[in-house]
Design a protein around this nucleic acid. Sequence first.
DNA 1: GTCTATAGGCAGATAGAC
DNA 2: GTCTATCTGCCTATAGAC
Lengths: 201, 201
Amino acid sequence: MGTRSRTDERSTAERILDVAEQLVQNRGYNAVSYADVAAELDLTKAALHYHFAGKAELGEALLNRYVTRFAQALAVIDAKPVDATSKLTSYADLYLDVLQRQRMCLCGMLAAEFQTLPEPMRTIVVRFFKDNETWLSRVLSQGRTEGTLHFTGSTREAARFLIAALQGAMLVARPFEDTVRFRKAVSSLIAGLESKPSAHL
Amino acid sequence: MGTRSRTDERSTAERILDVAEQLVQNRGYNAVSYADVAAELDLTKAALHYHFAGKAELGEALLNRYVTRFAQALAVIDAKPVDATSKLTSYADLYLDVLQRQRMCLCGMLAAEFQTLPEPMRTIVVRFFKDNETWLSRVLSQGRTEGTLHFTGSTREAARFLIAALQGAMLVARPFEDTVRFRKAVSSLIAGLESKPSAHL
DNA sequence: GTCTATAGGCAGATAGAC
DNA sequence: GTCTATCTGCCTATAGAC
């Protein structure tokens, strides 16, 4: 545990973020201490304070990196000229990857703990959701134009619904240690967007 | 703060549970201390230990009461001879009530913190979701029989999807302090069950 | 049933040597 | 950059008086 391999050339700051990220996504921000992170890296708490002044700064750095990476992943999806449905599937796969590594979405986790977060962290969590909303809105709009996706209401409303459903599916899947639950929820979600809604009367 | 009113005849144990419940649903289990609860009731930490041996026992008592109350609320819904759609609406209203009191569903919150919970609490959280699944499955089954609800896949799968979507909608609504988001998510959910799915080709 | 007092531990954080 | 040592404060928990 924590023994640095010869080929591990990431900076200490990066390795601290890696460990902290894993721990926070798994246990929550309030259940992770400097001691936990330091132990996993065979460092002392003081060494952590050298790289990140305090827990709030560590949390902020953690969030910024996560949000940036997520945005990059979305850019990769955008780069492929595919239909809206396969973009949505790729999007859901991002969440599935997180879940399969025994983690909750960092921002989903922090949304639960939101009331206890320092203001700078709150701002970033909110921005994450807004950015996801915006990206999904564009994909949904594309789908409507293509005629591949069908939904009532605004694209933004549908985007919000997608985010909520995915976050909730992750949240509930974890206590059951059941990624199948999550996959089925994704299938239901996408199926619901592919079929034309028709009034029942 | 904490001054007991003349007409407040709940037992101290109940009042402790009330305060602890509010705090945990708002901040999370790991962010609530005996001191927080005691302060709000003008009691000492030692007095709390008299009623609940430790934090794990308090958490367990909290959960048991919550699960029992939720089951009672579902029984009330079942008592009315109404169609499945209005049962679902009443079900969603239970969550809306929680959200409007600045809270997350207790078990949704604890699902996020699941990895840090003592085993007895974990068991109850899982049971909560299973019980909800079972109850919703029956309502969905009723709706299918009535011809008022339409969905593909098993009732259990649809029930799981509903729970995930509602929990996720609460989770995300809170950072935005926006109950409208939640209401719209509920509308989308129920609308999706009322319309007949039809292939788009 | 509630209190004071206190134990023992871990939290986040800092000073200063190397 | 990392260490040892230490600080202060809060945590859960207990003993024993009232």
